[in-house]
Design a protein around this nucleic acid. Structure first.
Lengths: 260, 260
DNA sequence: CTCAACTGTCTCGCATACGAGACGGTTTCG
DNA sequence: CGAAACCGTCTCGTATGCGAGACAGTTGAG
């Protein structure tokens, strides 16, 4: 049946959950069977188990199945345990040790980025990316790095119209979807995102997405530095180290290695 | 093995996930085996499947297991599919039809309530509880109803100190944990929460928690009315209808019936 | 330093779950 | 209106997964 030994029913149930999590609305049982290449009777049996456990709701009136409250509770539990922070701290500490510049870890939160970790290098100034701070994703290197690693449809969904391109004081950033798309294409080509003085004068940031097992940008690691303090070879080293540590964190969360 | 027929490995895997979701930090495998009365070798096998699927992370350095990114994605997927809104809309529509007063559905979001649905009765004034609005839970009937249905430890965790009791303009509400606890005890005794002119002068609300399969307050249904328009028997009917519809929504999300 | 406790892996006999396919009911489409 | 498609349930022969318990390595306590 499935590739790994033992508990194929458990594996199939988890595949059903993951598939449901990726849908925008409940789906028919037959869709699950065909999408996941599972026998129909097995799908019905597993859906029964998932419904009993509260992970799935059966919308009998529309003959579809969607996620239940227990799925929400998994998300809450994830937030409570803060695995990205737990795994991210040592990785960022090592990165900052090596490059002697400040770094932070952020995740997407709607159209914003949310900063989970800031690791400040000795004698470097405090950053706006303090823990708990949210900033519009399209104005930050971390946000651009994660947006660049998402499917185009997801980016479009996040930025459906001009109103989505919020301004923040005098900051410059993309104000149309076309400009954003160009920046994302450049980011993918380059292999990392750049933010140059958009947030704080004199400072620049580079960021790389951290990819999870499903190929999704679970987080981004960014390094911030005074732009006058680094020549081109020095910047290249910052990039290389940031990419390497993003891959390491990706590996630790059970992800795939390359964001772009 | 387990009570329901078929797929006991799937059921056990889901129990492991739910147990992990309820912990505040990663746990050792042996704890899962004893807490869930599962054979040790089965727990290790299932953890292997859960790790492969990204639902669980193995923190080998501390020999513990915690939730992984796929758990977070289930929470996101739940939010996207909005099952509480889908199931809640018809229940609130029916309630408003019967009592001819406005009603809304809210969930907890940290220390706030978040309004998901507002069903306004004909010719009744608009409420502050518009969809998407957040208000401090301790100042609202819906929030009080849900807090009353939580374990005391959870309430304490949400309100650790005086700073947690945010003020909102001239509104009156509990400003100490002792006062909050007394209000919650009264709410449990009474069977519903009352908010009388705290939010809007002349208006009162009653609310009842909607309980999920795990006994947790997944949401609350509240009814808002002009306090001068209802005598005591009329209010009793509002209470009874609100309780009945809260139980119905609880049933539809696969919950248990009684909040207090 | 030693021993007990714990962690994680592995084996294999046996009991149980899987899934092809039938069935009855419901919904949809021409 | 009738037929096709779909949904959800059920059976049962067969293949497979489960789990008790052994084992080796690691960690912690005295």
């Amino acid at each position: 049946m499935s590739i790994e030994s033992g508990a194929p029913a458990a594996s199939a149930a988890l595949r059903i959950l993951s598939h449901l999590a990726a849908q925008s609305r409940p789906v028919p049982a037959a869709t699950l069977a065909s999408a996941l290449s599972l026998p129909r009777s097995s799908v019905y049996k597993l859906l029964g188990v998932l419904v009993d456990a509260g992970f799935v709701l059966h919308f009998a009136d529309i003959r579809r199945y969607g996620l239940g409250i227990a799925a929400f509770e998994l998300g809450s539990g994830f937030g409570r345990q803060e695995p990205l922070s737990r795994l991210g701290h040592p990785v960022l500490a090592l990165l900052v040790d090596r490059i002697v510049e400040s770094a932070h870890l952020a995740v997407m939160h709607g159209r914003d980025v949310l900063y989970l970790i800031e690791e400040r290098a000795p004698r470097k100034q405090a950053l706006v990316s303090d823990v708990g701070v949210r900033l519009p994703a399209h104005l930050t290197a971390s946000g651009i790095a994660m947006l660049a690693a998402m499917p185009a449809a997801q980016v479009r969904a996040l930025f459906p119209d001009a109103a989505a391109f919020t301004r923040r004081g005098e900051e410059t950033g993309p104000e149309t979807y076309g400009r954003l798309r160009r920046i994302l294409t450049e980011t993918r080509t380059r292999g990392f995102a750049i933010e140059d003085q958009t947030i704080t004068p004199g400072l620049a940031s580079i960021a790389v997405a951290v990819i999870d097992h499903a190929g999704w940008p679970a987080a981004a690691i960014a390094v911030t530095f005074e732009r006058e303090s680094h020549d081109e070879p020095s910047r290249a080293r910052l990039v290389e180290e940031t990419q390497r540590h993003a891959r390491e964190l990706s590996r630790r969360i059970g992800g795939v290695s390359s964001p772009y």
